[in-house]
């Protein structure tokens, strides 16, 4: 498509990545986290809106709990459906992560631009021996690459590979 297309035949194609799915146990962690959040919201709603401030905030309708439940179901359906979209791919000189069902995202970081890496484990992830790897580049570092829910061994291997690449 571009005029200098002669090089395009030999360059690696992002469309043919060998994606690896993240560990399926991570779904349980996601669901567990979501359960905690929604339970807190339900309790807060029950005690604050429904009981304590019932006079100030009139109940919206008799179906408010049903509406809330529908929101929870939609949220979790998106979570579960989106889970299979979370995948990553490692190539010789870059790492890619793809996710999202309503908004599909694919991010690729060339190793040559990596500033530093972090592998960390949250308490619940530790039970499943899962870890997350976060890759920082220069500039606004708020949405660099972060892959959650990969086996700790795998995460450390990736970390070592990239660290070696940078130090070469």
């Amino acid at each position: 498509m571009f005029q200098n297309a002669q090089i395009t035949t030999e360059i690696p194609d992002i469309d043919q990545l060998n994606f690896l799915k993240i560990h399926k146990n991570y779904l349980w962690i996601l669901l567990f986290n979501s359960a905690i959040v929604w339970i807190v919201i339900f309790i807060a709603y029950y005690f604050l809106i429904d009981h304590k401030y019932a006079e100030i905030y009139p109940k919206f309708s008799n179906y408010d709990y049903i509406i809330l439940a529908i929101i929870v179901i939609i949220y979790n359906v998106i979570l579960i459906a989106g889970f299979s979209r979370r995948k990553y791919a490692l190539r010789e000189k870059d790492i890619s992560y793809s996710s999202g069902i309503l908004i599909e995202k694919l991010t690729t970081v060339p190793f040559a631009r990596v500033q530093h890496l972090e592998v960390d484990q949250k308490p619940i992830s530790r039970l499943f021996k899962l870890a997350s790897i976060q890759i920082f580049t220069a500039g606004e570092s708020n949405d660099d690459l972060k892959i959650n829910g990969i086996p700790k061994k795998e995460a450390l291997k990736i970390k070592e590979y990239i660290t070696n690449f940078i130090n070469e």
Partner: peptide
Amino acid sequence: IQHIKMRQTVFQKRKNVTDIILQ
């Protein structure tokens, strides 16, 4: 570039178009 991102909403997917965000 520091990293590069492709972003596609469900509506964009139907039209087979995508945004590219260069960091």
